[in-house]
Design a protein around this nucleic acid. Structure first.
Length: 270
DNA sequence: CGGGGTTCCTGGCCGC
DNA sequence: TGCGGCCAGGAACCCC
């Protein structure tokens, strides 16, 4: 599922393909999750940015104020360029560009989302509106992260997935970082020392995944259709029943707060 | 307002 | 071989 490294991989590929292009027409699947897509028509792409797992495409209108095309890839969403969009039952949105190309949003499971808003107005996307700092923000240090973690009494894994203490972490990289920092996903209080370890682990795990163009378990594809390769480097996620690479104990899986967590019962003792 | 539960979706996989 | 049943999972949404 696309998390920060996957979305950043898409953003980096998309940016040179889209900046400067003008959107001349568009259509979308009728679901409310995608129906705003055509509202981007008539605008030029000024920049392609990212916050957490959200792609933010800055739009410059012919006249009037700036807008923002926001795309969340959900679980199975992908963005691709096409010279002539072939028939695809999973196409959820299409934008025609002034040079004849098309930007296509494909999403089998429809967990993705598209919004067009006034620039910077994220009130219609509560998670984006309340999004925590970017993991690589230099202003984020152990003390600040510890304070953010302490703002909730929920399990640390659940809190991470809420996007509030830090942006862009989903199930894969949460499990990986908790394994690496030897913190149990169900921990409800994480002190300064463990906050420091967790922040370091998150940064390491995300940076390594980004270097390998993200993790493709099944669906994730970059803009040009290639797979990421980080799936070969996972230590914990999806490895339930296999030995822990650090201590040899068998990794276990448990559902915590309706979400599967894999962890090492020895290294990540409660 | 934090927190808990529900819902949206469909391909892939499992067991019979 | 075919098929019913189940699962994954981000974030909006609703309710207390």
């Amino acid at each position: 599922m696309p998390e920060l490294p996957e979305v950043e991989t898409v953003r980096a590929q998309l940016e040179p393909l889209l900046v400067g292009a003008r959107i001349i027409d568009g259509d979308s699947h009728p679901s409310a999750k995608f129906s705003q897509a055509p509202e981007a028509v008539g605008h030029s792409v000024e920049a392609v940015r990212r916050r957490g797992k959200y792609l933010l495409i800055d739009l410059l209108p012919a006249q009037g104020s700036r807008r923002e095309l926001i795309v969340h890839l959900g679980m199975t969403g992908g963005l691709h360029m096409a010279s002539s969009p072939i028939d695809d039952p999973y196409r959820r949105a299409r934008w025609g560009l002034d040079d004849g190309r098309h930007l296509v949003f494909r999403d089998v499971r429809r967990f993705g989302r598209i919004a067009v808003v006034a620039s910077g107005d994220h009130r219609s996307l509560p998670t984006l509106h309340e999004l925590g700092p970017e993991p690589f923000d230099p202003r984020l240090d152990a003390a600040a992260f510890h304070a953010l973690l302490a703002r909730s009494s929920r399990r640390v894994k659940t809190h991470l997935l809420s996007q509030r203490p830090i942006a862009g972490v989903g199930n894969i990289y949460a499990d990986e970082a908790l394994w690496r920092s030897r913190i149990h996903p169900g921990a409800r209080r994480v002190g300064l020392e463990r906050s420091d370890r967790l922040l370091d682990a998150l940064r390491a795990v995300l940076a390594e995944a980004l270097e390998h163009n993200g993790t493709t378990l099944r669906d994730f594809r970059t803009v040009d259709g290639t797979k990421g390769s980080n799936q070969h480097r996972l230590d914990c996620y999806g490895r339930s029943g296999l030995p822990c690479g650090r201590c040899g104990s068998i990794l276990t899986s448990r559902v915590l707060d309706q979400r599967t967590s894999t962890y090492c019962p020895t290294c990540q003792a409660h």
